[in-house]
Design a protein around this nucleic acid. Structure first.
Lengths: 213, 213
DNA sequence: ACTCCATTGCACACGAGCGTGCAATGGAGT
DNA sequence: ACTCCATTGCACGCTCGTGTGCAATGGAGT
């Protein structure tokens, strides 16, 4: 009952390396699979995840004491990755619409990894996840506001909501099963720019430049 | 075990009117409350719904033999209402962008009623609801295609996906708790038009005309 | 007063998912 | 060979939501 260790414990002790390596590998696989499974069905149980990962339910509990821990880890990873991308792309001396274009372009290939965030936003853990995405939302709101003040983005919606709409549009596109044709990064970029109120011609121009980079 | 009667049975027999009237009233209240409750939390149980409706759990089962029947009824109602609005608004001799504007304007005041559809689309009943919305999606896809062919809408996305994006944008706006300011129909209309690739100036013009009708 | 009947307030059985405990297995490192 | 230790397999107990059964209540219509 002393120091509950959720996840990474005795590092620095570093046992034989490959023994621990095996365990980490399993843990990683569980996380990868869980991201996929929960992305398609947020209500999937530990049993489903375990089966999909090729292990027994009991094993999952060996890595994550509770289902909530697994979900939280997943959400934290996703939010963290997005923040990193955002930090790399966001520069004050670059026009907001260009920043946004680069952001979406960078985000797109990873978008399927974050379906879990969208799927989880509603349902059970709404509040916890909302907290995790607060940082993302704030950065996005600032960027959007900057774009509005530079007359690059529209003012049809308040900045915070507008930012949320624009990037949830990206996820919505990536999310859409039953796409007749495969949708590419350029289409997603254009759509999100349109949401922001960027004129179609400019949106195409931006997306095309970024796409052929 | 003979003829299972889910919902409206012995009509035409019409018992004393107010006795049945009382029951229908309760049923209606349950549906109204369930729409609200399930809209906020798709995983809400029969107990939650009953409590919110001010009745006992057992009573709900008196009106809907199973939880699935309740949600199906809700989904059917919502889909039906949307189809009706669409039918009233959609005319071949009216430009697609005008039709769309009228559609969103008519839909907006009722949008909160249909959050349940969005909330239910993922989770448990995805397939059933998908079927119900097939009609809506088809009409929307046709309309969108018509707009694209008339050069009114963009071609950045295939027509079916574009249509879905545009009207899910409306629901997304209506859905957004934590809106600093109340968002009005005009803002929602503009946003969905932008998604469709309508130039901002034209989008504002359309939304404004429809708003001051 | 008498009769319907919608609602109530318990009772129960059932299934599903969670989280835990513990002995057994088996592979990789020494 | 011997030792770790991650994984397994099966055992529980627990909670929670579902759906059903049945007698009791009480109000509204006659």
């Amino acid at each position: 009952m002393l120091l509950r260790c959720t996840g990474m414990c005795n590092y620095g002790v570093m046992v034989t390396e490959s023994a621990r390596g095996a365990k980490d590998e399993t843990r990683k696989r569980i996380l990868d699979v869980a991201r996929e499974v929960l992305g398609q069905n947020p209500d999937a149980g530990m049993g489903d995840i375990a089966a999909a990962a090729g292990v027994v339910r009991r094993t999952v509990y060996g890595h994550f004491p509770a289902r909530a821990d697994l979900v939280r880890t997943l959400a934290e990873q996703a939010a963290e990755e997005i923040v990193v991308v955002l930090a790399e792309v966001n520069a004050d001396d670059v026009p907001a619409d260009v920043v946004w274009t680069r952001f979406v372009t960078r985000l797109w290939p990873l978008a399927h990894r974050y379906r879990v965030l969208l799927a989880l936003r509603r349902g059970e853990h709404g509040d916890e996840i909302h907290t995790l995405l607060e940082t993302v939302d704030r950065i996005l709101a600032d960027l959007t506001r900057r774009g509005q003040e530079a007359q690059l983005f529209g003012r049809h919606l308040p900045a915070d909501l507008l930012g949320r709409m624009a990037y949830s549009a990206v996820f919505a596109i990536a999310d859409d099963r039953r796409a007749g044709v495969a949708v590419d990064a350029e289409a997603a970029t254009i759509t999100s720019l349109l949401v922001l109120g960027v004129p179609p011609s400019r949106a195409h121009e931006l997306a095309h430049l970024s796409g052929s980079r």
